[in-house]
Structure formats: C-alpha cells, structure tokens
Design a protein around this nucleic acid. Structure first.
Length: 279
DNA sequence: AATCATCCCTGAACGC
DNA sequence: TGCGTTCAGGGATGAT
C-alpha cells in the first residue's frame, strides 16, 4: 500500500518521463472518479512534486514563458493499489498520452486511487490534502510542535494516520514507528519523552524507507511496484507490520495484532505497554 | 470540533 | 476442484 516512501519513489521514477513533456490527452472512462482531467490537454508538465501521499503535476500552457506560474495542477493519489506502468494492463484506469506518442498508464486494480485537475492550491475537494501536516523529512517538521500537539492527542496511531501531525504516514509505517519508539498504538496524551522518541522514530523509519525505495509486500497484482516493475526493499526491515505471532526482535515476545481505527495494528505487548492516561 | 462507522473496490487467502 | 466468504485499507462522507 503506497505510503510516503512508495509515493516518493514513484515521483522520482516518473519525473524524468514527464518533466517538460506536453500532455496530449488523458483517457479514462470514469469522469466522476477522475474529474476535470481534460483541462490538462495540451499543457506542459513543469514539475512533479509530492505532498504526503499525493503527487502533484504542475501544468502550464505549452508555450508559456518559464517565469509564468503554472495554472493547473493534476493531483494523483495512488490509493491502495495504484501505480504507473509503461505498458497497458488489465487494470489500467487512466492513460496519459504525451507528446511524441509516449504513453504512461495509471494502473489501479481496486480503484481507490484518484486523479483530478484543480487550480493550483485549491484543494477544497480533497480535505486531507488541504489540511496536510508537515513533511516528515523536512525542516518544517518541528519536534517541539509535534511534542506539544501529542500531549493532547487521542489514540496515537489514529492521530498519526490523520496526516495532520505529520504527512505521509500510513498503516505500515505507523506500526513500524510506534514499535521503534516503544509506544502502544492506543496510547493517548503522550508524555514529552514518548513524543520525542516517536518524532525521531518517524523521521528514522521514513528516511530509511525512502532510501530503500519503499516496501513491496507479497507478489499479487495489488502490491506496490515501481513503474518498471522493480520492488522496493524496505519490507525486509519491518519489525511489527505483518509479523503477527513472530518474536519481537527486541524481546522475543510474540507480536500481537489488534484492530484500531478500523486498521490492522501490530505491536509488541512487552515493549509497547499501554500506560494509563493519568499515570 | 472531534470522533466514529460506513462505504468504495477487487484480488488473494481461506474454509468447507 | 470449486465455490462462497472474509480480509486488506486511505480517505471521503455522513452521523453522533
């Protein structure tokens, strides 16, 4: 499931294919699911950026001067199973036709992904993007602010997944970060030392995962792959996610799985103890 | 305002 | 073998 490391890996891989190219046409048969993509026809890709798990194609008229700001953004969210491919497949949902006849295919078996064109910065139709917290690997992600906000948070994993304290953390990296910080996923109102550990754990886990090209799980059609089919490798460094029943690598206690916030949640019951809210 | 359940969607894994 | 059931989950939405 693409989280920030997988989305960033995707961005780096497809940027050279898109930057400077004019989009001739975007084809799909679900106008309600992929709104306003026709506005991108004939526009040039100025840049490909990322906010959290969202990819943003900055588009401007093909003949616009370089110092004229872009006037359209194409937002792409990979959802659970989305990814770009160089060849059409049974789950191709959107086809990007570029100048010179090149094509890039958006593949998405479960159709949770999103593609939409909006005016730059106008994210009202995507409230999670509009309220997105700081990038975990940037200087904007401040420890003091994170610690302050964590002092009054609800269940910490649910809070992390909200994208508000920090962007790009999904189910896998939330479990991994909490394992590393030795905090129970259902812990509320983090103490200062707990929040500080979690802050550094998020940065550490996300940084290492980006460096590894993300995580690739299993070998089914829905699993994350780069556009050229290459898998990431961070899954070999997972300590909690998907490790149900296996011994914790710190203490040997079997990893437990529970459901928290409608999400499968993996943790070590020995290392990650739920502290009473008033203690 | 914050929290929560429901829905979307389909392949894989599972059970009989 | 084959069919039916369950599970996976990011984020929008409506309800509380």
């Amino acid at each position: 499931m693409p989280e920030l490391p997988e989305v960033e890996t995707t961005r780096r891989k497809i940027e050279p294919l898109l930057r400077g190219k004019t989009i001739v046409q975007i084809q799909h048969d679900a106008p309600h699911k992929y709104p306003n993509t026709h506005l991108a026809h004939g526009k040039r890709v100025r840049a490909l950026t990322r906010r959290g798990k969202y990819l943003l194609l900055h588009l401007a008229a093909a003949d616009a001067a370089d110092d004229v700001p872009h006037d359209l953004e194409l937002i792409v969210h990979l959802g659970m199973t989305g990814g770009f491919r160089l060849e059409q497949g049974p789950h191709t949902r959107v086809t990007f036709e570029l100048e010179g006849g090149e094509k890039l295919y958006f593949n998405d078996p479960r159709r949770f992904g999103k593609v939409a064109a909006v005016r730059p910065g106008e994210y009202a139709s995507m409230p999670t993007l509009a309220a997105m917290g700081p990038e975990p690997l940037s200087d904007d992600f401040a420890e003091a602010e994170f610690v302050r906000a964590a002092a009054s948070c609800g269940a910490v994993k649910v809070w992390l997944l909200s994208q508000k304290p920090v962007s790009g953390v999904g189910n896998i990296y939330a479990d991994e970060s909490l394992w590393l910080a030795r905090i129970h996923p259902a812990q509320t109102r983090l103490q200062g030392d707990e929040a500080s550990r979690l802050y550094h754990a998020v940065r550490d886990v996300m940084g290492r995962a980006v460096a590894a090209g993300g995580s690739s799980l299993g070998n089914g059609t829905g699993n994350y792959r780069q556009h050229d089919g290459e898998p990431g490798s961070y899954q070999v460094h997972h300590h909690a996610y998907g490790k149900t029943g296996q011994p914790c690598e710190r203490c040997g206690t079997p990893i437990e799985k529970v459901v928290l916030g409608q999400r499968g949640t993996h943790f070590c019951p020995q290392c990650q103890v739920l502290r009473k809210a008033d203690s």
